[in-house]
Structure formats: C-alpha cells, structure tokens
Design a protein around this nucleic acid. Sequence first.
DNA 1: GCCAACGTTGGC
DNA 2: GCCAACGTTGGC
Length: 210
Amino acid sequence: MPRTERGVKRKRDTNDKTAKTSNTSQTNTEQKATSCYSHWLMKSEPDSRFEKGVDVKFGIEDLKACENQTACWDGVRNYQARNFMRDDMRLGQKMFFYHSNTKIPGIAGICEIVKESYPDHTQFDPKDIHYDSSAKKGSPKWFMVDVKFERMLKRFIPLSELKQMYLEQKDSGGPLSKIALFTKARLSVQPITTEEWDFILNLEDEDPKS
DNA sequence: GCCAACGTTGGC
DNA sequence: GCCAACGTTGGC
C-alpha cells in the first residue's frame, strides 16, 4: 500500500475534467481506449514516516513481502496520477519502482501491472488517512491498479545519476531530455517512453558514475 | 529542516 | 474564471 502522496482531503474537483464521462459503463478490462503510453514510473517511500499516526512506508522490499509479491497502489490523490492509472495503464505493462523521500532516491526495481484500474477502497474508509468524504460509492473518485514485483535492478540507479544525464541531454537532446521525473517532478505516477525505458535499463550494466 | 515548484482552494 | 493564499512534494 504505497502512501507516497501525503494525505489530503480535497473539497472540490476543479481539475477533474474526465471523471463524469469515462468509467461508469466500463467493465474493467474491456472498452478502454488504447493509449500511447507503454511504461511507467511509480514513486513510493521506503523509509518510515508517520502521517496522522500511520506509517506510510512502502518500499520495494515491502512489496516483495506481500502475498504473491503483489499489492494495490492505493492512496494516490492527484488527478494526473489517477488518470494515468485509471485510463492508461494496461495489463502486462512494466513500471519502475522508484524510492522517494529517502537518503538516496532512485529506481530500485521493476514491476508489472497485473490488474487494471478499479476503485481505491481507501477513499471510502473514514479511518484511512486517504479517506475522501466527497467520494461516493456509486461514482468513485480515486482508482488504483495492482502491481507485482518482477525483479530488482542489477544495481540501484540513483536520481543523481539520472539528473546528471538529464542535464547533459536537455538542451542537446537525448533519450532522457524530456523525462517526466524532472519535467514533472512532483507527479507520483508518470509515463516513461520506450526510449527512456531502454536507456535506463542499459544503465544497469554500466558502472555507477562518480 | 529548508524551500522551490506547483497543485488546490475559494473569494471575488 | 482569475489569482492570491495556502498546502504538499520531495530533493537537498
């Protein structure tokens, strides 16, 4: 249960342009439009941090320890991030498990989407830190997917290394020149292009820089 | 612990 | 529907 996004209750839905039209008549695995996104990066915090008395820690080791090495990605309360999960994530797609808010942030491993979007149950639970009193059972506001651990990266790829490459590439162009990790830094669920994915995977086999 | 970046709120 | 105030994210 990743809890990267610090819990907030929001009274309005100002940015929620797509909520009414999609999803109500969808069965879960059919009828979703195809999207150009192919890979993902999802952030979660590997260190203990208490929010309203609840530990929000959920690192890749915690996912590994889950039954079936699978967990639902609950607690996302940002519309852009939600829309990616709700509308674009497809069964079988791969994602990078990113460790945020920790001493050395970076990419720890790879997971697979094993269940497409369905309502995030925590929005209905008054005791949960991500409870949203404006969400109705008949028209849920927040969605999640299930992810399954696939493997650790051969080496942890720190944010600093990706940043260095991003800075080198952003003016001259290069595989990482537009990566959301830096152009949309605060998004907790981000699309990764095939080019970015392949480039980052190749870093696994290289020696760490500096 | 600081704080820049940026998303949300809500008065007008 | 603008936008100032406010709150959160998350690297450093």
